[in-house]
Design a binder for these strands. Structure first.
Length: 595
RNA sequence: GCACUCGUAGCUCAAUUGAAUAGAGCAUCUGACUACGGAUCAGAAGGUUCGGGGUUUGAAUCCCUGCGAGUGCACCA
């Protein structure tokens, strides 16, 4: 049940009846607070077919709607804007429907499948703040698509191949002294990351030593022994040298274990993992086929290129002169493999930072040239960098904020705040621990998701955890308060059935307003999917919480003497709590019963 | 240098994709607790939407231009 769709169809009928013409694009929007009504039809575009002034046009439509639609009770016209009030019966029906469907906001299955890739980190460094935005975004967009009725496949590509992992391996071999996660007590990804840093330190030291001995900078970069070792290991890896492969497997295994712990904490998961070491060969095959078909071309040195100058881009290398593959080659292979594995998917979403926009533009063009028509349905969900208040965070400059550390800090801060306010008396230690995790992570997720993904953003940890304002904890708190009210109603044996709601015929303005917000959920779920933007949902969850607070302040629920109205308000409270819970769920945020 | 993205209140973000007087939160100021969770609510103040042109009934939004910030332009991933 969707009020807007219902209203649109009524307006469509009216326009057809009054002006003898049909219009596809009706502009229906929420009415501004200063005017009476809930929905507004913008009538300027209609003047073309009505051949009358905007006000006259609006008046004709409004009058006809009140007379014939059965759902519009009143209208007023301001300039070209037709403000419509729906009858209270419509709102009561709406609440009945929502109250009967605790899963309100979930659209019926549409039989379509979609694949969403996210996370996809390098295996040589631990996860950082940027990965948090990526993971929360990808996971949330997946949930939003599920809510739209899609069957969603969550995947990631693991960058397990290449010189970067060999650097960690080389450093570990030289200085590791057999250290393992078990022996050091370090998380696997942290341990491997440590040796990646070790490599860099040793490499730089060796370069400057060679330079003081008289080498040029360039020579030194090539001749540094540790770099030679890493390159040698890469060669051995490609030749499937057993010892190198075994070390590679071991160290990658450590990283995966470490990442696994972090993913679990973040609350994200994957249906299937793709590994570059498995897909780059397929990519290579496809590129060679493309050469035969004349889609790509070979230079004299043997390297393979694609010419995109006709598309306004430049030429791009696909295979090196020694025949080995590059990043693009692997991504071609991965994309094709995924459509083979999941032939029914209607498209693929890549959650990757905006610094790779050019790469994906090229990738989709190439796939298109290779004749894959699904290339049109691949989408790069591009997101901006996350800055911190204390200067900017850039992974290349080493001032990264570690994901595990940040999550720890958020939970600690949540605990500190909660204890200061001291309402935890009745909770067991287990419950409080769960609560702190909920609010700490909720604060983090909400703050990272409330901003339009495309935009670069500033993460303020202190602001994010506040219980006031546009934050996760504020919404969680509001939910807990509503649940307290419902518990009280239950203790008074006030159980409300759907039929009880029919008894109410006249609503308070505050109730109408709040029902209007509540009824917008389905529309928001659709909008969020269309824009690939959890921010739409975050804004909506906040709106629900705020609306309830206002309602609560203006209408004391238990002071009501009319039992029908009392029941109505309790049902309404419960429906709002459910909607908050569900919308926050789409962001991967749990809401507590009490806090 | 070329390409792409962005620039909105002191700060962090919105604006249903071209509509009404550009909205929220934080911070600041003023009010409301004998109550069901006041961790709330009501109100005030805060804007030349970076500058300048243009398109039209109408522009933060579209086009041109200047300034500022960021990112990308490897036989790296």
């Amino acid at each position: 049940m969707n009020l807007e769709i219902l209203l649109r169809s009524e307006i469509q009928k009216t326009v057809a009846a009054v002006f003898n013409q049909t219009v596809d694009n009706l502009q229906v929007q929420p009415t501004n607070a200063e005017f009476e009504g809930s929905h507004t039809l913008v009538c300027f575009p209609l003047t073309k077919i009505s051949r009358k002034g905007p006000e006259e046009t609006a008046k004709l439509v409004g009058e006809h709607l009140v007379q014939h639609s059965g759902i519009v009770s009143k209208y007023n016209v301001v300039k070209g804007f037709l403000n419509l009030s729906l009858s209270d019966k419509v709102w009561v029906d709406m609440l009945q429907y929502i109250y009967a469907h605790p899963n309100y906001g979930q659209l019926p299955a549409n039989g379509e499948e979609i694949m969403i890739e996210y996370s996809s980190p390098n295996t040589n460094k631990p996860l950082h703040l940027g990965h948090l935005r990526n993971n929360f975004l990808g996971w949330s967009v997946s949930e939003i698509y599920k809510a739209n009725g899609y069957n969603v496949h969550k995947v990631q590509i693991i960058n397990d191949r290449g010189i970067h992992i060999c650097k960690s391996m080389a450093a570990w071999k030289l200085y590791g002294d057999g250290e393992t996660p078990a022996s050091s007590g370090l998380k696997g990804d942290k341990l491997v990351g440590k040796y990646y840093v070790e490599f860099d330190k040793a490499y730089k030291a060796q370069i400057s030593a060679l330079v003081t001995k008289g080498s040029t900078q360039e020579e030194a970069e090539k001749e540094a022994p540790i770099m030679k070792l890493a390159s040698e290991m890469l060669r051995q890896w490609e030749q499937k040298d057993p010892e190198t492969l075994s070390l590679w497997k071991t160290m990658n295994g450590w990283v995966y274990d470490g990442f696994g712990v972090t993913y679990k904490r973040m609350g994200v998961d994957f249906e299937k993992l793709y590994y570059e070491s498995d897909t780059y060969l397929l990519g290579k095959e496809e590129v060679l086929k493309g050469v035969e078909k004349g889609i790509f071309f070979k230079k004299e040195d043997g390297s393979v290129w694609v010419d995109l100058t006709a598309d306004g881009l430049d030429q791009k290398v696909l295979l090196r002169s020694d025949g080995t593959s590059v990043y693009m080659t692997q991504d071609i292979g991965t994309a094709i493999l995924r459509f083979r594995d999941f032939p029914k998917i209607v498209g693929q979403v890549y959650t990757v930072g905006n610094e790779q926009e050019y790469h994906f533009k090229v990738l989709f063009l190439i796939l298109n040239k290779l004749g894959y028509d699904w290339a049109k349905r691949c989408f790069h969900l591009s997101y901006g960098m996350v800055d911190l208040p204390s200067g900017k965070m850039k992974s290349r400059e080493g001032t990264v904020v570690d994901a595990d550390d940040l999550m720890d800090e958020m939970v600690e801060e949540a605990e500190k705040q909660s204890r200061e306010l001291g309402k935890l008396d009745e909770m067991s230690p287990d419950e409080t621990k769960r609560l702190f995790n909920m609010t700490g992570l909720g604060a983090l997720k909400f703050f990272l998701l409330k901003v339009d993904p495309k935009k670069r953003m500033l993460f303020d940890p202190n602001e994010s955890i506040q219980l006031q304002g546009f934050t996760g904890p504020f919404i969680q708190y509001t939910h807990a308060r509503i649940r307290a009210i419902i518990r009280k109603a239950e203790s008074m044996n006030l159980n409300v059935t759907v039929d009880d709601l029919r008894a109410v015929t006249v609503l308070e303005p505050a109730e109408r307003e709040a029902l209007q917000v509540l009824s917008a959920f389905e529309g928001k779920v659709k909008e969020a999917a269309k824009d690939y933007s959890p921010a739409v949902i975050a804004n909506y969850a906040y709106e629900l919480a705020k609306e309830y607070n206002q309602f609560y302040q203006s209408i004391p629920i238990f002071n009501e003497s009319d039992p029908a109205k009392l029941k109505f308000r309790i049902a309404f409270s419960k429906s709002i709590a459910d909607a908050i819970k569900r919308s926050m769920g789409l962001l991967g945020i749990e809401v507590p019963e009490r806090m």
